[in-house]
Amino acid sequence: MRTIEDLIKEHRFFKDLSSEHIETIAGCGKNMVFKSGEYLAREGNPADQFYVIRQGKVAIDIVTVEKGTVIVQTVQDGEIVGWSWIIEPYYWRFDVRAVETTHAVALDGKCLRGKCEKDHDLGYALLKRFSGVLARRLEVARLQFLDVYGVQQGQAAVQKTKGKRHGTK
């Protein structure tokens, strides 16, 4: 059976880390399985872990009054979810929910934070990787914000006035 250390070593997110650091990280990890609908994290809770998704798919959710639960992004096999553990004040900003049965390695952020404080090389290596995750999330969010496939504002205005004209007839 493959150990958590093997899984971490093979994962592209941890590529080029020293074997010593991989051993340290693996020491903070455990395998978990989430059934569809189960939560990996809840908004506002202390962010004491992050997840390497081995198999399955999770949704990053925001609950709204107007639109109900909105999925911000989905994350699946081979990707990482959770950056709140490394950035103060270490609380989850979003819900993370399994969309299907999901196998993940949960890594203990609290434990890793302590190790990063002691070993800044490890801290730098992880921060560098997590800033990459953050940058990707930001890029995706900005593009989503543009609503590129939506009806353009000008167009909507045209349709609106047209609708009004029909209404008065």
Binding site: V70, I71, T74, Q76, V99, L143, Q144
Partner: peptide
Amino acid sequence: DQAGKSWKGNV
């Protein structure tokens, strides 16, 4: 780009 909770696909 946007989906509600019932969507099982990618967002």
